[in-house]
Every structure is written in C-alpha cells, then in structure tokens.
Simulated scan of single mutants.
Amino acid sequence: MIVINNIDDEEIRDVTDETSQDAYMYLTNKLNIETNLTVIWYKTEFDSSDYILIEGVNGKDLYHLDLIELENTVLDDYKFDKKYVKLINGKAIELKFKTPV
C-alpha cells in the first residue's frame, strides 16, 4: 500500500518528483519484488519528499483507516526525523542515498 500525504494539496507528482533518483529507484524496486509493504510518502515544508517504508505490514488490513489512524497504527513512536526510513518491527533504519533531488 502506498499512502501519499500531500499536506498542502500537492499533486501526487509534486510529492514523488521531489524524491532523489536513488531513493525512488530503491523504493520502486522493493515494491516490485516484495509483499507486505506499506509506504507513507510525504512532502516536507522545505519542498523535498521523504518516505517511510514499513515492512511486514499488510495494507489490505489498513486501507479503511484515515491518514492519522494509519500513522498511529503503523508508526508507533516514530518522530519523522529522518529523510528516508525503513521500519522493521518498530525499529527505524535510516536509508542513505548518494544522489540529491
């Protein structure tokens, strides 16, 4: 499941286009080959886009939740303090990529 959090009513393209190429390719590759992934993809107030990739969470069980309920359910205490993050069993692992936006 991919959740686009367009805080200021941006278009989906506005959110995805502000993601670095390496981070975008990593995410799309993961989504193409793995299951039970949920992504919260959002644009920050500084005009760059970040995402949180949550492993082991089946979006089919969560699609009926609104954004706040979804974040509360899958993010626990995560503070949105890293650019690209993979969450596994509640543990945040920062993903680092070379190319800038």
Score class of each variant (00 low, 15 high):
residue 1 M to W: 03
residue 72 N to P: 03
residue 75 L to S: 04
residue 27 L to I: 02
residue 93 I to M: 10
residue 27 L to C: 07
residue 30 K to L: 14
residue 56 G to T: 02
residue 78 Y to T: 01
residue 56 G to P: 06
residue 2 I to T: 06
residue 56 G to V: 09
residue 59 G to C: 07
residue 29 N to W: 01
residue 18 E to R: 10
residue 64 H to I: 05
residue 44 T to P: 02
residue 14 D to S: 12
residue 14 D to N: 11
residue 24 Y to K: 12
residue 24 Y to M: 13
residue 15 V to H: 07
residue 30 K to D: 13
residue 55 E to D: 05
residue 46 F to K: 13
residue 76 D to L: 14
residue 3 V to Y: 12
residue 99 T to K: 14
residue 19 T to H: 06
residue 5 N to T: 03
residue 70 L to H: 05
residue 100 P to K: 10
residue 9 D to G: 09
residue 85 V to K: 11
residue 97 F to V: 09
residue 42 Y to G: 04
residue 2 I to R: 01
residue 22 D to N: 11
residue 56 G to N: 01
residue 16 T to V: 14
residue 31 L to K: 00
residue 87 L to R: 00
residue 4 I to G: 06
residue 24 Y to N: 12
residue 81 D to P: 07
residue 22 D to A: 14
residue 68 I to T: 12
residue 13 R to P: 05
residue 72 N to F: 09
residue 80 F to D: 04
residue 30 K to M: 15
residue 10 E to I: 02
residue 72 N to G: 11
residue 29 N to M: 13
residue 20 S to Q: 05
residue 77 D to T: 12
residue 49 S to V: 01
residue 16 T to S: 14
residue 84 Y to A: 04
residue 7 I to S: 11
residue 3 V to M: 09
residue 76 D to P: 05
residue 90 G to T: 02
residue 20 S to W: 02
residue 2 I to F: 06
residue 8 D to V: 05
residue 29 N to L: 13
residue 17 D to A: 11
residue 81 D to G: 11
residue 76 D to R: 07
residue 5 N to W: 13
residue 44 T to M: 03
residue 89 N to P: 00
residue 88 I to W: 00
residue 38 T to N: 02
residue 89 N to D: 15
residue 61 D to Q: 13
residue 52 I to A: 00
residue 60 K to S: 15
residue 20 S to N: 14
residue 42 Y to A: 05
residue 18 E to I: 00
residue 67 L to A: 06
residue 19 T to R: 02
residue 61 D to S: 14
residue 46 F to T: 15
residue 62 L to V: 02
residue 12 I to K: 15
residue 81 D to K: 13
residue 34 E to C: 09
residue 100 P to G: 08
residue 58 N to H: 05
residue 70 L to T: 04
residue 52 I to L: 06
residue 90 G to H: 03
residue 71 E to W: 08
residue 56 G to L: 10
residue 73 T to P: 08
residue 10 E to P: 00
residue 65 L to P: 04
residue 74 V to G: 00
residue 32 N to Y: 07
residue 65 L to F: 12
residue 54 I to Q: 00
residue 66 D to R: 14
residue 23 A to Y: 03
residue 76 D to C: 10
residue 49 S to C: 03
